[in-house]
Design a protein around this nucleic acid. Structure first.
Lengths: 192, 192
DNA sequence: TCCGCAAGCGGAGCGTTGTTCCGTTAGCCA
DNA sequence: TGGCTAACGGAACAACGCTCCGCTTGCGGA
């Protein structure tokens, strides 16, 4: 964290900053209408730039996705400790936090699938989610374990991937109720 | 089911039958080494045929996948009633049957993901699985419900899709334990 | 204000894959 | 054996990810 009066990294050119902003807006809009798998060319057209400009600012699709959703993910990260402090029980906090995570995922068409993809282009995406969310989930799990509310043999990584997987295809079929399945999973976590 | 001495549909030409067999073998081998997303051309080369021949025999990738795995899926279908008859409790039968399903899915790289894909090319695949497996699962669920062993608010379709989803990415990361998560899901099903 | 340079841009173009289409080949039956 | 046509093969087209390089333009210095 530099507190100097001037940035050590030289400021980017005005058009570069303008394009980056335009790309983020265009990508966000494109993700809503066509999912995170929307063709790169479509995003470029929306933003009024060439495809080369996209790759210069965001080398992989994962970088673009992370940039678009960073704020929401961070909000989810910060909600963890807050829920733990406010909820009646650690298990309730865990359930509510997972609900938040599900809320986030099911509204981003194709994101849950991209998260589990073994495509190299999505490695950064996977890493970012793991890096930010696993510690929070770990904290919630630890608290619930300490309160003797859940089994001890489930780790945060596995749980988050499981929940993420259950969010794949949400909304594609009215008979597939993501939330009920997640609820089932969390219920299975309880000690009996 | 026609029991006449001759088929109403004229027998296919010898080369056509030979190629279909070669394609099934080639596809099975290609699926093992490269997953069910293996490029069509690769399968054609393995089978020693042109790509046109693939599309003539199997109009969509789903048709080819179904043809390759039909035997194993039918075995799973038939195992349902057998387990129900042999197991100690309906819930045990359900758990064992789901284990069989998981066994099948986790050994087919990419199949679980294809199953949930909303790609039109996989619609037939999805439909076939649903058509064959949902009734069996339904039977097992009904028996467990009748024995007061599980909750009544879960339908076979939702459960199977949930289990299928949990199988996505199996084996891609040693920290992701598909079987434990499925076990958790089935545990959450129990009445408490 | 003007100049020069390099940061940044755009999109043509290549490689990969799915899918179609049609000229050619070769089983099958009379 | 001859001819009809089922069946074949692969060229060709479309869609997409990604790279590369000639051109543009923002910006600091004179």
């Amino acid at each position: 964290m530099d507190s100097g009066s001037e940035q050590p990294v030289p400021r980017k050119r005005a058009d570069a900053r303008r394009n980056e902003r335009a790309l983020l807006d265009a990508a966000a809009a494109a993700f809503v209408t066509s999912g995170v798998d929307v063709p790169v060319r479509d995003i470029a057209v929306r933003a009024g730039v060439g495809v080369g400009t996209i790759y210069r600012h965001f080398p992989t699709r994962a970088d673009l996705i992370v940039a678009v959703y960073r704020h929401q993910i961070e909000a989810c990260v910060e909600a963890g400790p807050a829920l733990l402090a406010d909820s009646d029980t650690p298990h309730a906090a865990l359930a509510q936090w997972i609900d938040l995570f599900v809320d986030f995922l099911v509204t981003k068409h194709g994101l849950a699938a991209a998260l589990q993809s073994d495509d190299a282009a999505f490695q950064t995406l996977h890493a970012y989610f793991i890096d930010r969310l696993v510690p929070v989930c770990d904290q919630l799990l630890d608290a619930a374990v300490a309160a003797d509310q859940i089994r001890t043999d489930m780790d945060a990584y596995g749980l988050l991937r499981g929940v993420g997987n259950l969010c794949i295809g949400a909304g594609s079929d009215p008979r597939y109720d993501t939330r009920r399945l997640v609820e089932l999973l969390v219920a299975g976590l309880r000690v009996r």
